[in-house]
Design a binder for these strands. Structure first.
Lengths: 150, 150
DNA sequence: AGTGAAACGACCGTAGA
DNA sequence: TCTACGGTCGTTTCACT
């Protein structure tokens, strides 16, 4: 595998990172391919899971005013716990890590009360969770979706 | 302000979270509006920054094999430091937090060497950075882009 | 704000290099 | 894997509600 993408596909991905609804014809003009060729490549990229074109929303503007990263230490199987955490609707991001936390989970809540409730009545009730540490978001400074094509 | 979105717009956002290229006509059928009405609402949502439709890529499949969250403690103005960190191309996510870290930054690197280099020669060289703690990602368990419309 | 109609442009399958 | 082309469907504009 390796980097996997040739220059043409990288250019196509870049175009779609700017505007996910840009037409294949327009992208074709920008990268020097026919519309059909662009369509074919986009199809393959999405089929292989390299790329997906989706709507992303701003939680703050949707009434979710409390976001936080929760650092979790646990004993037992981290995979099972991570899997359980993933099922919670308030959690949008779960990653198993090496370091002083075993799992990092990002949560999106409507307000502080629902965050407290989530912590006390859900996360800390899971088997194996020993300690948690909460980092409430004060300001989201940067959020990019264009990994890999800098 | 508040939650801001009525039921119809929420349904539209949901459709586009499933497939960012779904046609307005198809969305219209699904939510019970005309194509023109859907397009109007999508336009407003993106203009206001509530939603954006973009391609998101999988770093692993693009040759970026090392990801990590960096917890940063600093003195001085966290906003200025966060702003500086945001300028680094390896960093895709920066948030100012309350708790035992002042800033959390997610980094995407090609390999362990470039992560070490990033930490030693860039992040730790910034004014005000006192300590950093690195959480290397072992497994990305969940990653959602559909906040706010559960 | 939403609808409907007509002109325009995008999309998709297929054939061929 | 790409281009070319034609049928179909989506998008856009505008007048109207």
């Amino acid at each position: 595998m390796g980097s996997g993408l040739d220059e043409l596909s990288k250019l196509i991905v870049e175009q779609l990172q700017q505007d996910g609804r840009k037409s294949y014809a327009e992208i074709g003009k920008a990268v020097g391919l026919s519309e059909a060729a662009v369509r074919q490549r986009v199809q393959k990229l999405t089929d292989k899971g390299v790329m997906q074109i989706v709507a992303v929303t701003d939680p703050m503007q949707l009434g979710f005013y409390t976001q936080a990263m929760i650092g979790i230490r646990c004993n037992g199987d981290t995979t099972i716990l991570a899997d359980e955490l993933s099922k919670l609707p308030e959690i949008d991001y779960v990653v198993i890590t090496a370091g002083s936390f075993d799992i990092l989970a990002e949560v999106v809540c409507e307000n502080d009360d629902s965050l407290i409730n989530l912590l006390n009545n859900k996360i800390r009730k899971f088997d194996g969770v020993t300690t948690t540490e909460t980092f409430v978001y004060l300001k989201l400074q940067k959020q990019l979706y264009n990994w890999g094509t800098r």
